[in-house]
Design a protein around this nucleic acid. Structure first.
Lengths: 194, 194, 194, 194
DNA sequence: TATGAATGAGTGTTCATTCAT
DNA sequence: TATGAATGAACACTCATTCAT
């Protein structure tokens, strides 16, 4: 079935915004750059998104959704036990789609922007709460609540931290190394229960 | 000895920039806001820093220096053994001066901006390499090089991740909880060697 | 006999333009507002009127025609003597259809616009000359030409002035009071001849 | 004594706005036109008036003030009796400074705009109430209150109406003829009391 | 015939930078 | 040395107009 045209064009604009943020940053983005990147006219953004803010919110939602999808896809193919699921969550976060130069820049820009925008912060929080809940739930299958929550907090932070520091290298993100470090953290937390 | 006047005024401007970034973000800052916050004229920035970029670079340097100083102060009062030093590094990073709303916003804004500015990225890298080196050096006192480096990578990421996620809560940063999680990571890494 | 459809739709658009001018003013009007008010598409205006200017000219013509019709209707029912006809002209100008908030705003906007548009000015002049001629003709039945013309100039100005000042009150236009003042002017001019 | 520079430049901008309104109308005015007319940069308006609206409000105030000054100057040189004062008010309103093409266009544009702007309407009302009060006060010196107020309403309307209809001619405003018609109205009102 | 999505020129406004004082 | 008035380029946004359907 054909997607309807408006939806396609909105998606093209969001992708163009995403790419442009990767190039010049969220702070430096202009609508004419996005329009040019998308091969459309400057007036099109207000037509589809109301204003610049609307486009950027939509772009952030796409970024969050992409991460969610990447994690979900890997979890679906992983074992059902706690460790496999936690490893899958780790690998989803370090999926190539999430660790490309462009993705990491957009992520970080939106995170920083969420400090100064109520709506972006709300989106960010919803998303992060979900990551934390998922991790926490898996740990709770094998650890007491209190410890499970601490471990979840640690793992979520470790994932974000590895990813954050990776964004700085400029080279290709070493997902394998990051994954090993995070998996090691999980193993240490789960080993006590064996 | 009296600091010379120009140096004092530059410092005042840097502090004003820091506060203003906390208020409106790095993307939203204007020189007239900074000048007003500092109680000076709009032309003064070019006078002392050449242009806006110059002021922001200086502000980022101040932010990095403040973190370094916070860590150094706590390390100086800590025991000389590896664990004490690592705990001190952790506590330095979660020092109240570093986890205030304003500090965290400025930090994150500069981190995001460093994705799109060669000079800011350079400053950021120098600093992060130093954090990593310090941590790595302490782990090397008790672990084989390979493991020490992995542990250092993990701890550095964990610290940054805890801090990053803390920036999102909006509430007061729970430094105590963050510290416990990071210390736990250190203990787990060191326990193997006892 | 059925009006043909195009003519009906043009009339609907003109009415929509008239209402919209009442809401937001001639300066603030947009074609999409008019189209929405008329329940039609944005492209329809160029289809029927060529461009925005064409619609506005047609709207002004309608406004002038409505005034003419209001005056004509009242004159038809009035006595044939000069005073009755002059009173009828006065009352036609202060007819509720002409002193509604919407009408007065549209009137005034078109009057102002006619200062800067050759075509609007032409329309305005034709209309005003007709009002003046009608009044002048009635006065000429009982006054020498010279005095009749001066009286006509005075009465026309008095009507417009009462109407203009009434537009400013914001409250309901006091047509009765305005009519009394204008009739008094007529009576004073005619009394000399008795 | 030298006027301070900022005040001079604001005045220049207001005059430029006044002239530009005369050329293209209030609806068609752009800040770059005003700036060009004033020989200044486009940014200067926000510098002095905040925004476009601020400039236009200031321009309207100037227009109102100029009329007030024209009337006041002529009244000061007129006799103290009611008729002389009323004649002076008439002549002030038809002073060349008020009946120039540019003045009349600006006046009318502001009057129309005041239908759609709370602040402009307020300015307009204050001014018109003052004209009415002055006229009413003079009539009250020789007529009973009720009749004085009706006469005042009539004269105010007649003045505005003559002026309004004059704006349409495009030729030079015939101030003499207008004045005669208005004076005649005054005389008719006052003659009853002799 | 009628639609409404798309265009892009033109607007008001912001703000880093300059420079006469 | 320090000021802040002035500049003008760059921006987001609006909206009359076009044209494929």
């Amino acid at each position: 079935m054909r997607k309807d045209i408006p939806e396609q064009r909105k998606e093209q604009l969001i992708n163009a915004a995403f790419e442009t943020i990767g190039d010049v940053g969220l702070a430096g983005i202009t609508l004419s750059q996005v329009a040019k990147e998308a091969g459309m006219s400057t007036g099109i953004v207000s037509h589809y998104f109301g204003d610049k803010e609307g486009l950027l919110h939509a772009t952030m939602r796409k970024v969050l959704r992409d991460l969610h999808d990447a994690v979900a896809a890997i979890r679906a193919n992983a074992g059902r036990d706690a460790q496999s699921q936690l490893f899958a969550i780790i690998d989803g976060n370090f999926d190539p789609s999430q660790t490309s130069e462009t993705s990491m820049r957009a992520w970080l820009d939106f995170w920083a922007a969420s400090m100064h925008s109520a709506e972006l912060r709300r989106l960010q929080r919803v998303n992060d709460h979900r990551l934390f809940s998922n991790i926490s739930y898996q740990f709770q299958r094998v650890l007491p609540l209190r410890e499970a929550r601490a471990a979840a907090r640690g793992l979520a932070a470790l994932i974000d931290g590895l990813w954050l520091r990776g964004s700085l290298t400029g080279e290709h993100f070493d997902a394998h190394q990051a994954s090993l470090i995070a998996r090691d953290y999980v193993e240490q937390k789960l080993v006590a229960c064996v």
